[in-house]
Design a protein around this nucleic acid. Structure first.
Lengths: 226, 226
DNA sequence: CGTATAATTGAGATTAGTCAATAACTGTGG
DNA sequence: CCACAGTTATTGACTAATCTCAATTATACG
C-alpha cells in the first residue's frame, strides 16, 4: 500500500485492530444500526467505544459558528469513540446501515491491566495511528484541492478493498468537511478528474476509476516520498 | 489552558509524560547536544527514543521535491522519536543546545510488558495526543494564515511557560513549514500583528506580546468551541 | 568588515472561496 | 406510477487569500 493511500487509515478517533488479533471477539454483543443512527454525541459520557463490524461511520465535530469538521470515517475493523476524558468529543453516526460491537470502557481498562500483550498492541496501534495522522494532516495542509480529492479517492478505494468501481457512502459535503475544502471545490475537482478521463461519474455516489495510475500520480505529484 | 493553545502540545511524534510520573527517571544517562546536532535521521534504525530534558528540538521530514514538513517541535518533558516500525520516519535535530535522555526501545518494550500501569499511562498519553492531533491538524487546515500565526505564538507561549516575552528558537522558515505556509506569509502576518499593536518585534527572534487577549482572539476567531 | 543567511516588503499570478443559479437525485404521498 | 418538494450536486462569475518571484534590508558569523 502506498503511503499516500493512508488517509482513511489514519482516522484519529478510530484505530484499526490488526485483523489477526480479534481482540474483542470474546464479546458477542452486536448492535445493528440504521443509516443516520447516532452512536454517541459530542459531550456524551464515554461509556463505550465501538468496533465497526459492518457499514461506514462518520465522526464529526460541529463548531459554534456552524462549521463542521469530519474527523474520521470508520470502516469495518476500526475502533471508534476512543476518548481520553470522561466525555466524547465528537458526534458519531452511521452513513449506512451496519453493525457495531460496543466495548465497555471499564472492560477495556481492566483488560489492559491484566493482559500486557493487549496493552502493547493497543499502544502500538495508537502510536502507529499517531504517526500516520501526523503525516496525513500535514500533507492535507499542503496539498492542492485536486491532490486532496485524488488522494481521498485512492485512500477510499484501498480502505474498502474496491477495485475500479467505488461507491461513496458520504456526500460531497462530508468529503469537503473531511478534506478542509468547500462542496463546490470538491465538485469542481471531481469534474476535473472526469474531464481528464481519469474517472467516470455514472452518478454522484459512484466513481469508476479509469486510470488508477494517473489518479495516484495526481494524488502524489507534489508530495513525493523518497 | 484554552483548547486552541494546544498546538505545540500535540506534537505527534512527541508525547508528553505527565510531570508527576517520571517514568524514565531510573535511567540516569543524559546526553548533551549542541544546537543543530541531530538525534537521528529519517530512515535510521529505531533504537532509542528520547525524553527532552532541556532545549528545543525539531522533527522534520524532507520530501524528494525539496519541500519540508516540520512535524513537531519538542520541548522539555516531551518524548520524541516514537516509531512504530524499525526505522525512524523523520529527522530530528536540536534548535538550541540541550539535553536528552535516550530510552532504549528494547527497555521500553519490556517495561510495558512487566508494568501494566506504565502501559496504561503510555496508552492514555498516546490516545490523548491522537485526539489533540486530530483537532490541531484539522484546525490548521481550516484556519487563515493570520489565525495560524497567532495560534502558534499563543501555543508557544503556553508551552514554554513564557509570560509576555517570547524567544523563538526557530526561524520563520521553520514556522512556515510547521504551519503549512510560506516564509513570506508568516512574515507578513507577524508584521500585521505588530502593526495592530498586538505584538512587538524588537528583533526577529523576540516577540513581546502587548495584548494577549487580542492575540488569543485573533487565534480563535473563526474556530469557536462550544 | 564582508559575505552569507534570514527577514521583510512589494507586485503580480494562482488558487480556492463566496454567492448565485441551475440541474439531478431522493423520497414521499397522491 | 407519477408529481412534487427537499436535498444534493454541478457550474459560472466574481472575490479574496495565499503563493511566487523579485528586490531590499537586517542579522549573524567568520
Amino acid at each position: 500500500m502506498s503511503r499516500l493511500a493512508r488517509p482513511s487509515d489514519s482516522t484519529v478517533l478510530s484505530f484499526q485492530v490488526p485483523p489477526c488479533h480479534t481482540v474483542f471477539a470474546a464479546d458477542p454483543v452486536l448492535r445493528s444500526v440504521k443509516a443516520h443512527d447516532a452512536l454517541f454525541f459530542d459531550g456524551d459520557e464515554f461509556t463505550n467505544l465501538y468496533e465497526v463490524v459492518e457499514g461506514v461511520f462518520r465522526a464529526s465535530k460541529i463548531y459554534s459558528d456552524g462549521r463542521r469538521q469530519i474527523v474520521a470515517f470508520a470502516y469495518p475493523g476500526d475502533l471508534v469513540g476512543f476518548a481520553q476524558s470522561n466525555r466524547h468529543r465528537f458526534d458519531c453516526d452511521a452513513l449506512t446501515a451496519g453493525k457495531v460491537r460496543p466495548i465497555s470502557r471499564h472492560a477495556l481498562l481492566s483488560a489492559v491491566k491484566t493482559r500486557p500483550a493487549l496493552a502493547e498492541k493497543l499502544l502500538s496501534a495508537a502510536v502507529d495511528q499517531l504517526s500516520c495522522m501526523q503525516e496525513l494532516s500535514m500533507i492535507l495542509c499542503r496539498k492542492s484541492a485536486l491532490e486532496r480529492v485524488a488522494s481521498f479517492l485512492c485512500a477510499f478505494r484501498e480502505k474498502t478493498g474496491a477495485d475500479r468501481y467505488v461507491q461513496l457512502p458520504m456526500t460531497r459535503g462530508d468529503i469537503a468537511d473531511y478534506l478542509g475544502l468547500t462542496v463546490e471545490t470538491v465538485s469542481r475537482n471531481m469534474t476535473n478528474l472526469r474531464q481528464r478521463q481519469i474517472i467516470e461519474l455514472p452518478e454522484p455516489a459512484c466513481v469508476r476509476i479509469l486510470d488508477l495510475e494517473r489518479l495516484r500520480h495526481v494524488a502524489e505529484e507534489d508530495v513525493a516520498y523518497h
